[in-house]
Write a protein that binds this DNA or RNA. Structure first.
Lengths: 195, 195
DNA sequence: GATTGTATTGAACGCGCGTTCAGATAATCT
DNA sequence: AGATTATCTGAACGCGCGTTCAATACAATC
C-alpha cells in the first residue's frame, strides 16, 4: 500500500488542474509552458507527468470535466413543464454557471482547436448535447404556440452565444450585479422568441 | 531608385499578411511559427522581417486593419433616420461583414491577449467605438419610445455577441444562405428590443 | 554592361520547449 | 527497524523558436 493521509498527490493533482486552467485561460494553451504551470504549483516540471500523460491531455481533461459538470448541473435543475419557465431557468442557469467558471468557459470556447481530432470530437459532442437542451425547449414552445422562432436550431445557437458573451464584460463589483444581469438578458431572450 | 514593376515586395507583403491571418485564425497566434508562415508564403523566415519588425506587430497590424475596415465599412452604410431601419441595417451589415472575413473576426476576438498593453488598448478602443455605434442606435430608439431596452449598453454587447457567433457555425453551402441567416437574426434582434 | 539598391537567402545566436528517467526523499506497512 | 512505494527532483534529450545579419541575386537605371 501507500500513504494516504499526508499524501501530496491529493493536493498536487487538483492544484495542477487549477493552475493550468487559470494560465490556459489567461494566456492561451500554446503560450503556456509545462514549466510555468509547474513553477506556479511549486513543483518541478517532471512531476506534472505523474498526473497527466502529456500537455494536450491536461487540456482535454479540463474541457471534458467542465462540459460534464455543465450538463450535470443543468440536468439537476428542476424541469418545469412550461416552456417559458424552462427557458427562463436556462437563461439564468447559463449566466450563473458561466460567471462562476469564467476561466473554464473561456477555455471551452477558445482552445478546442488545440485538441487532436478524437478529443475534439468528444468535446464537440458534449457541446452539441448542451445546445440541444435549449433547442428542445424552443421547439416545445413553438409547438405549443408559445414561441415564434423561424429556426430553433439557429435560435438556440444565437441565444447561447449571447449569454456566453456576458463573461467577456462582467466584472464583480461592477455597475450591475448578477441578478440584474440575469434580468436584462432574460428580458431580451424572452422577447426575442416571443409569439 | 529601385524596381517598381516586378517588385516582389508588392506581392510578398500582402501575401504574408494573408497567410498569417489564415494560420493565426486556424491554429492560434502562439501556435504558429514565423517559419510556418514563411514556408506557406514560399520564402525564408528571415525575409518576413523586411515586412514586420516582429511577430506581435504582425498580429497587431492584422487586428488594427480589420477594426479600421470594420468601422469604415459601417460608417459608409447610409444612415437612415429611423432607429428600426438603422438597427436592421446594423444587424445585416454585421453578419455580412463578419461572414466575409471570418478569419479576421476570429482573430479579433481571440488573440487580443497576445498583444502588449499599448497595442491591446488601441484595439480595445476601436472595439468600443464599434459597440458605441450600436448602443447609440438603441438609445435613440429608446428615447423615441420605439425600443425597450433596460440597459442599452449591455443590450448592445449582447446583440453583438449573438451576431458574431454566426461565424462559429455558418458554412457556405449549408442549410441556410446568408440572406436567410440575416432574416433569422434580424427577427430575433428586432423582437428582443421591441417596445 | 557597369552600377545601384531592394529583395531574399541561409546560417547562426541563445533560449525555452515537451518529455524522459535515474536517483533522492519521505511516509506507510510489516 | 527495515522494506516498500508513492512522490518528486534535477539533469538531460533533441528540437524548434524569434530574431539577426553578412552575403547574394537580380531588376531597374545609367
Amino acid at each position: 500500500m501507500a500513504r494516504k493521509t499526508g499524501s501530496h498527490s491529493e493536493i498536487t493533482g487538483p492544484r495542477i488542474r487549477a493552475v493550468a486552467r487559470a494560465l490556459f485561460a489567461r494566456h492561451g494553451f500554446a503560450a503556456v509552458s509545462m514549466r510555468q504551470i509547474a513553477a506556479e504549483v511549486g513543483v518541478q516540471a517532471g512531476a506534472l507527468y505523474l498526473y497527466t500523460p502529456d500537455k494536450e491531455t491536461l487540456l482535454f481533461d479540463l474541457l471534458k470535466a467542465h462540459m460534464d459538470e455543465l450538463l450535470a448541473a443543468w440536468d439537476a435543475v428542476p424541469a418545469g413543464k412550461d416552456p417559458l419557465a424552462r427557458l427562463e431557468a436556462f437563461v439564468r442557469f447559463h449566466i450563473r454557471f458561466n460567471l462562476d467558471r469564467a476561466e473554464a468557459v473561456f477555455l471551452s470556447y477558445m482552445e478546442l482547436r488545440n485538441l487532436g481530432p478524437e478529443n475534439f470530437a468528444v468535446i464537440e459532442g458534449l457541446r452539441r448535447d448542451y445546445e440541444t437542451r435549449l433547442e428542445t425547449i424552443l421547439r416545445d414552445g413553438v409547438a405549443q404556440g408559445r414561441f415564434v422562432a423561424p429556426d430553433p436550431k439557429v435560435a438556440s445557437l444565437a441565444i447561447i452565444a449571447m449569454l456566453t458573451g456576458v463573461t467577456t464584460w462582467y466584472r464583480e463589483g461592477g455597475r450591475l450585479g448578477r441578478e440584474a444581469v440575469g434580468d436584462v438578458y432574460w428580458d431580451m431572450v424572452r422577447k426575442a422568441v416571443a409569439a
